[in-house]
Design a binder for these strands. Structure first.
Lengths: 253, 253
DNA sequence: TGCCCGCATTAACCCATGTTATTGACCGCG
DNA sequence: CGCGGTCAATAACATGGGTTAATGCGGGCA
């Protein structure tokens, strides 16, 4: 769980959900993971609104969040970036960023230039295709978040966010059994769920009281994932994990 | 406003926000607009969850919505499709649809096959680039909706939705001065804003009472757009309309 | 090692929005 | 031309989640 030893495999592992990569694809992928590494502390900004797009970011370890502000300071996290996630491969089409990306925990990323990206994908159409799949999944997640924010109750919403994060971490190989690191604060969870920190605290306690989650030492334990999914009205369809007849493993490898 | 005479220009007009298209690009674009036309009544489904992606849809007239259900029937509209909008140019990467698309008013679309699309873009990299820009703007809108649903109050939220729709319609050339067709029901507005129809009714009346909107005969009139924008905490940055030094016209051409 | 600040918890109170129900207007279809 | 169904308006009441504030823990930095 986040020990860093197999860091360069998170992206490959995830993309192989979608397609079988050749050794050349895997090497290209590995090269991307080794682009300039950069570390951040929790709450540091990675990208700021108004910036000209400069890098594609690959998350190697820790959690980041994409967020937007209202003029009076209210803030919404509109997506999580977890290990193996890639930030906006098409970003260079835009002139400037319309949002922030910030570290939600200690964070390690690879900064990928436009040139690095083109080098990696130019002769690897399968890799490029897999990266497009990943982008489409990211926008499917974005849509699901609209459903989450617009229709689910507080309890459903928090349960749903936890299920989604857990499954995504599992796909990246960052879970052990039904446990995973849970490095983010309730404040961040509140900003992502459109609730107040006070109510997130209540809600997590309600989930714990029902035996649906256990947290200690920044580690999350989910005794019965099916039960939590039911509480969050969660189904994994929108993550499109079963593309070539593969299905979600009930355990990680 | 929706008279259909210049229907084939909505897409061209919008894309020229981003780049100057050559005559060849425009012709290709026009060809796309002329792909198999199809009409729907309000509330008919265009695409159903679980479908294999078959067409790319170009909206020619009327409004459509992308929506998702919870198992108990709660429903969220996660995006609007307005004239000139294109539905998911990359859709063929996915195996099946994870959501519905339905008509929110009488609707006219062009059904574009994978082959049609490839023909149109193969030798027109500028057109393809412009379509990618449009896709990125669509996902930027999706993020803004998360902010809308998560942080804005009911009044701000409805005002914001109205501003966004109006500006998008203006870009497509579907406004006259500060008026536009407003063919959708308060029920649809409620499903898009995560509110109840009852509260949307109250909220629209509050906006009208403040002189921010006027509606009659399915026509919307915005006496003072700046004031409405302020009420909705709306800024157009996320629509990325100013790509090559262009800016939002204060009136349509 | 100790201090300080950020985070989680808890409590009491409140209000924005949801709920349920009724009525009337309009419009498309027969 | 009239009927039925959908949509909007309104009212009375209910509640989920927000607000404010106080407390204590714990971990990172000096």
């Amino acid at each position: 769980m986040g020990d860093g030893i197999t860091v360069s495999n998170v992206l490959i592992r995830k993309l192989e959900r979608y397609t079988r990569l050749s050794q050349v694809d895997r090497d290209a992928c590995h090269a991307l993971s080794c682009s300039r590494p950069r570390h951040y502390r929790a709450k540091e900004d990675v990208v700021r609104e108004g910036d000209r797009p400069e890098f594609i970011y690959l998350i190697l370890d820790g959690w980041a969040g994409r967020y937007k502000y209202l003029p009076d300071g209210r803030r919404q996290i509109v997506s999580f970036f977890l290990p193996g996630d890639i930030c906006d491969i098409n970003i260079f089409v835009l002139r400037e960023m319309d949002h922030f990306v910030g570290a939600l925990s200690r964070l390690k990323v690879a900064q990928i230039t436009r040139g690095d990206f083109e080098t990696a994908t130019l002769d690897n159409p399968r890799l490029l295709q897999a990266l497009y799949w990943d982008t489409l999944v990211a926008t499917a997640i974005q849509r699901e978040w609209a459903l989450n924010l617009g229709q689910r109750s507080a309890l459903e919403r928090v349960a749903h966010l936890i299920c989604e994060a857990f499954i995504r971490l599992r796909v990246a190989g960052r879970t052990v059994g039904n446990r995973c690191d849970w490095p983010i604060t309730q404040i961040a969870l509140a900003e992502a769920s459109g609730l107040t920190p006070v109510h997130v605290s209540r809600t997590l306690q309600a989930l714990a009281a029902q035996g649906l989650i256990e947290m200690e030492n920044r580690t999350l334990h989910i005794p019965d994932l099916d039960a939590l999914m039911q509480a969050g009205l969660f189904t994994a369809h929108y993550l499109h994990l079963d593309h070539e007849g593969r299905h979600i493993d009930s355990n990680e490898g």
